[in-house]
Design a protein around this nucleic acid. Structure first.
Lengths: 340, 340
DNA sequence: CTGAAAGCGCTTACAG
DNA sequence: CTGAAAGCGCTTACAG
């Protein structure tokens, strides 16, 4: 069965195509009785606007894009992205807007995707994740004039809109909490060093340690895999003045750290306290359950989507700041024991 | 700067629009010299076909859709979906086809999404995941005449194309392996009972246990969360004739099971062997590392995308069967110890 | 081999 | 308040 078009409706309702268009779009220019009739016919015919025709007449595509630029094994290991999608989706769906997803191998191919999307008119705007300290995507998007909102930053977001949460507050909160438990040597197993949020956390961590006069605070960088998390943990725990607490930049590394501690026969939390950034099922399911820095990731996605939609409609709302991550203590952290 | 159109190219190259279209699409009807000139101009102008215009002229939308219908917390906990995306993407990208993603709360709203996509001409076809034993989506898609390939099944896929891997082979392989290690009481902590692949595994598990004359084989169903995985494990391990081996339907439940074993002071693998379905970073990072049933999920995604693209282009290739999951033994399984 | 024209389904001034 | 027409950027027969 052929799709119903506006022409079918016009014929059936006995009015012109133009009138149908006005009626369907809630514009003035048709009488209420005509509008009602048109709507009834459209409904009866199961009419839906052709996305292509709408887009072609200069209206919006009704699609926003998101490019992911990390190896799939890492994307899959972190619940972050899926939760972000769900938040974005929740905002898009009631406006019958769709999410277009693409994967890229590096920044250049990601930029290429943006160019293509722009030129083909495929998306109305994009949400950018994982800002780099020297991010080439930002100037590229500025040049393209593509509506975009960046999750994370500033710094590093240039003139683009951003949705972010303060990453330094939770770092200070965590270090203070651990210091209050008596920890003096706290280490951080961080993510990729070239990401802005890693840099922000690194800096906050160093500042907090200095402020609280904790000298032996080390930061080790990894690629977010459990494997590197384990290796970093092993290295830290093998050092002469080993830390009594470790803060991880994701949950899988924290679980890897927990396993290493067991391997090395260190009791958690008696001999070693562990904190994971971003809470998850995983953090809660291991024993002891992991003290975690909990964020409302879907809310971040929703805020980004809402913001982007405003941009697309010509508004320029102020940048959004979401709630900072909140420390959620569980069994993996405790006071420093006398041992050692 | 305005986007270049075919008219711009025609003018600049001094030929008609039609000629430009033929040249650009590699159709006969233009001389080689004209074609070369047109391509050069198009390239110079940075021309890209308007997705909307193409779609409107009856060509394909160049988009395939995928609807996810599970709570985001569960989607995020399993690497499966992200790995599937990456496989799909890898296949789509070279054909400049895009992936449209949508989340739905239940089957009815998922069907509604398909209807809308169809009516709006947004996608050329869809990939369907997680087939239910009484799946309303299948007849709905059949009725819509929408090109679709189902991942999983048959049974349950109706007249739709499918990409599947034999789920019973790995079940038998696992049970045989455990039996060879001396296990007589093997339990299974399964996923949602209404999913076809759960049913297939259930049946294969029961058959394998019967075949090998293992009487005490129980299957407990869960919602795939770590929490329910833990609860099921606790229940199994508290029963008078507790199992000496448990097979889990995902990695997060297996990790939860491992934690419960620790909680209950059962040594793994000496007193309890654990197997996880679907290998992952997580399975490898815990201690002992989990024996896992490993599948090439990106390959499944790629196969599904390739198959769907053929369908969209009017072919009707035979259903694809991917490699069955392969048992990958690690530290979490071992011979039954004398104790108990 | 090439040019002129119609058409895809919609929107939007422009007359009546 | 309504109808007839042009146009969005392409593709595709149809004449030359």
């Amino acid at each position: 069965m052929k799709r119903a078009t506006i022409a079918d409706i016009a014929q059936r309702a006995g009015v012109s195509q133009g009138a149908v268009s006005y009626a369907l779009n809630g514009r003035p220019g048709v009488s209420e009785s005509t509008r009602a009739r048109v709507l009834a016919v459209a409904n009866e015919l199961g009419w839906r606007p052709s996305a292509a025709a709408r887009a072609l007449t200069g209206a919006h595509a009704g699609v926003i894009g998101l490019v992911l630029c990390r190896p799939p094994s890492i994307l899959g290991a972190e619940p972050f992205f899926m939760e972000l999608f769900s938040g974005i989706e929740a905002e898009l769906k009631p406006r019958s807007c769709a999410l277009m997803l693409q994967m890229a191998d590096d920044q250049d191919s990601e930029i290429e995707v943006y160019r293509r999307w722009r030129a083909e008119g495929r998306v109305d705007g994009v949400i950018v994740v994982e800002v780099d300290v020297a991010d080439r995507r930002i100037p590229a998007l500025e040049e393209l004039g593509m509506p975009a909102v960046v999750i994370g930053g500033p710094p590093g977001t240039g003139s683009l809109a951003s949705v972010r949460s303060d990453e330094s507050v939770p770092v200070h909160e965590t270090v203070e909490y651990l210091a209050a438990l008596g920890h003096r040597r706290i280490a951080r197993v961080a993510g990729l060093p070239h990401l802005v949020h890693t840099a922000v956390r690194d800096e906050a961590f160093a500042a907090a340690c200095t402020r609280l006069d904790l000298p032996g605070c080390a930061t080790l960088h990894t690629d977010y895999t459990g494997e590197e998390g384990a290796r970093a943990t092993r290295r830290l725990l093998s050092s002469p003045a080993r830390p009594t607490a470790i803060v991880y930049d994701n949950d899988i590394m924290a679980v890897a750290g927990l396993s290493v501690a067991q391997e090395m026969r260190l009791r958690v939390p008696d001999e070693l306290s562990l904190v994971a950034w971003d809470d998850s099922q995983l953090a809660q399911v291991v024993r002891p359950a992991l003290t975690a820095l909990r964020r409302d990731v879907p809310a971040m996605g929703a805020a980004a989507a809402r913001h982007l939609l405003s941009l697309v409609h010509g508004e320029r709302p102020p940048d959004v700041e979401t709630e900072p991550a909140r420390l959620t203590p569980r069994g993996s952290t405790g006071p420093v024991s006398g041992s050692r």
